[in-house]
């Protein structure tokens, strides 16, 4: 198996706060890898480091064989990213934003692909509306579309389901599960444990910047354990009223 993501003792400090403390992990090609953790556990910082949006304080990492500090733009050219809470630029319409993304990524023609996504995620009626006027859910659909429209070999997606209704969540979960079957890889950060258990092949648990566990979901299931209970046993000790 080929590792598409390798992190070695990766750490990030913001002022006095150690957001990520020496995390080492490896993600194989074709995996649907779930990075799990409570709010503030360092998940977003991990994705930001792996996509070159922020520099590690120490340690090293490579994505698709590219060092994250050496060529972050090269990484972003080859992967798809859904950043947490980022929204598309205000004064472009949804369709114009996809055309903008296509032009930046040098995708020659996206008309049919864009139409497919508008239909698939059920927001064709919003394609000519300015991004600033879209609802949170529709913006999330647009950000999801821009991450996958160029069919990247690896997608790093941060809480992609958070603003979706249950029907849309189901649709997207199905899409992600099928996406990795073609040898492509997804690195998903989420705190919705049921989703992770349902679609992820491997997972890691991050808590207060420290990696507590990493391994295949199948191993858990083989032991007759469920991911939510396992997660709470590691992270949620003593937090019940």
């Amino acid at each position: 198996m080929t590792a598409v993501i390798k992190a070695d003792n990766l750490a990030k400090t913001y002022g006095d706060v150690q957001a990520v403390k020496g995390v080492s992990l490896s993600v194989e090609k074709g995996a649907l890898f779930g990075l799990l953790g409570p709010n503030g556990s360092g998940k977003t910082t991990m994705i930001r480091m792996l996509t070159g949006q922020t520099r590690p304080t120490s340690g090293s990492a490579s994505v698709l064989g590219i060092d994250v500090t050496q060529d972050p733009v090269g990484i972003r050219a080859r992967v798809g990213i859904i950043p947490e809470q980022e929204t598309p630029p205000s004064f472009l319409t949804a369709m114009e934003y996809l055309k903008f993304v296509a032009a930046v990524r040098q995708i020659p023609e996206i008309g049919k692909k864009a139409d497919w996504w508008f239909d698939f995620l059920d927001f064709a009626d919003k394609k000519d509306v300015l991004c600033k006027d879209l609802s949170r859910g529709t913006r999330q659909k647009l950000m999801f579309t821009q991450a996958f429209i160029h069919e990247p070999e690896l997608a790093l997606i941060d809480e992609p389901l958070i603003n979706f209704d249950p029907i849309m969540q189901d649709l997207v979960k199905d899409y992600l599960a099928k996406y990795v079957k073609n040898g492509r890889t997804i690195f998903i950060s989420t705190h919705i444990l049921e989703v992770a258990e349902e679609i992820c092949s491997e997972f890691a648990i991050l808590h207060k910047g420290t990696l507590l566990h990493t391994g295949p979901v199948a191993d858990l299931k083989a032991r007759g354990e469920h991911l939510p209970a396992f997660f709470l046993s590691l992270v949620g000790k003593g937090r019940h009223v």
């Binding site: 090269g74 972003r76 980022e86 929204t87």
Partner: peptide
């Protein structure tokens, strides 16, 4: 922020 998901330095 909005450019962080694109190959733009």
């Amino acid at each position: 922020g909005p450019y962080a998901c694109l190959p733009v330095a």
